[in-house]
């Protein structure tokens, strides 16, 4: 029997977000909706990354004067997860910006946002 705790719930929420995002990217036809689905996906990934570093009753991983060096590695949360999340947010924002900008250009050209019309395969 798996014990249900905060970490497991967060992982499940992250998985749900990723699945919703993937489904939206695959099945929604509007390009803007696809972009929103992508942001959901990226939020799910971020949540998973933060959850990975979670320690029950943990402390911030900054070694302050007075913290015992032995207890610190046991209780400190994993620092790399939040670090990656920061970068991922920045990358996500810039990706979204590029996506939206190109979508605007394509909308001006075609007058529609339907991916099935705008993004269909090329025949050379």
């Amino acid at each position: 029997m798996i014990e249900i705790n905060l970490q497991l719930l967060c992982f499940m929420a992250a998985a749900l977000l990723v699945v919703i995002g993937l489904g939206g990217m695959l099945f929604l036809d509007n390009i803007i909706k696809k972009i929103i689905a992508f942001t959901l996906l990226s939020d799910g990934v971020n949540l998973a990354l933060v959850t990975l570093g979670y320690v029950e009753g943990g402390i911030v991983s900054i070694l302050e004067p007075g913290t015992s060096a032995g207890a610190f590695p046991e209780n400190a949360v994993l620092i790399f997860g939040p670090g990656i999340v920061l970068t991922n947010i920045v990358i996500g924002v810039s990706t979204t910006a590029v996506l939206v900008a190109v979508t605007m250009v394509l909308y001006r050209r075609y007058g529609t946002l339907k991916a099935s019309k705008v993004l269909k395969g090329e025949r050379k």
């Binding site: 990217m25 099935s116 993004l119």
Partner: peptide, 13 residues
């Protein structure tokens, strides 16, 4: 092998 976005997404999954 056409570059339709949805088709490629499907194959990737």
């Amino acid at each position: 092998n056409s570059s339709d976005l949805n088709r490629v997404l499907f194959w990737v999954m």
